[in-house]
Computed example of a mutant assay.
Amino acid sequence: MPPDQYVASLARKRMAAGSLFRDAAGRVLLVEPTYKPTWDLPGGVVEQEESPTAACRREVLEELGLDRPVGRVLAVDWVPSRPERPEGMMFVYDGGVLTAADIARIRLQADELASYAFVDAGRVPELASAPLARRIAACLGAVAAGTAISLEDGRPAGERHP
């Protein structure tokens, strides 16, 4: 098979990148999108010819008005396809701890976000989708351990699931 045909036959995956920000109390920053019922991490889709790191920084600036360096990768999560969307790769970076001054500078992208909140880890499953809640819990573990984790639908890669 010629190389151009081979390349054209390869699978394409959607990608998104987000940032896990915390406040001084250790609560997680979640944003409330205007276009879906569940809350999310700040971030969004990786555009063509854009790295996940660059997408994370761009999306945080667009959504929150904060231009901050992107921290280390906390998790890479493969998400299986669902009826409403194809499979994808989600990258979560460590946004660090936001100071009171950082929080005061947050300016939401009004056409995409209705609000934001700092949420105790135990409340994340009430607001976020189940896969995102698992991903956030894994990321908090990675922050505490100083590591990164490979996930599949928010669960450690290789684990068997019912």
Score class of each variant (00 low, 15 high):
Glu126His: 12
Ala54Gly: 06
Gly88Leu: 09
Leu127Asn: 07
Ser51Phe: 12
Met89Tyr: 11
Asp120Ala: 06
Glu84Gly: 07
Arg85Thr: 06
Ile103Val: 14
Ala130Met: 11
Ala145Pro: 00
Phe118Tyr: 04
Arg72His: 13
Pro69Glu: 15
Pro83Asp: 00
Val60Phe: 07
Phe91Arg: 02
Thr53Trp: 10
Leu64Glu: 03
Pro86Leu: 04
Trp78Ile: 13
Leu64Cys: 06
Arg123Gly: 00
Gly146Thr: 09
Phe118Ser: 03
Leu61Trp: 09
Ile136Ser: 01
Leu151Val: 06
Arg105Val: 02
Val143Trp: 12
Arg57Met: 08
Val92Ser: 09
Ala148Gln: 15
Ala110Leu: 08
Arg68Phe: 03
Pro83Leu: 07
Ala121His: 01
Val70Ser: 12
Val119Arg: 05
Glu112Arg: 15
Gly122Arg: 03
Glu63Cys: 06
Glu87Leu: 10
Asp77Met: 01
Leu151Ser: 00
Leu151Ile: 01
Ala110Lys: 15
Ala130Leu: 14
Arg82Gln: 04
Arg85Val: 06
Ala54Leu: 08
Arg135Gln: 08
Glu87Phe: 10
Leu98Thr: 07
Asp77Gln: 00
Arg68Glu: 13
Thr53Met: 13
Ala144Lys: 14
Ala130Val: 14
Glu126Asn: 03
Arg105Tyr: 03
Arg68Met: 05
Gly96Glu: 12
Met89Thr: 13
Ala55His: 09
Gln109Ser: 07
Ile103Pro: 14
Val73Leu: 15
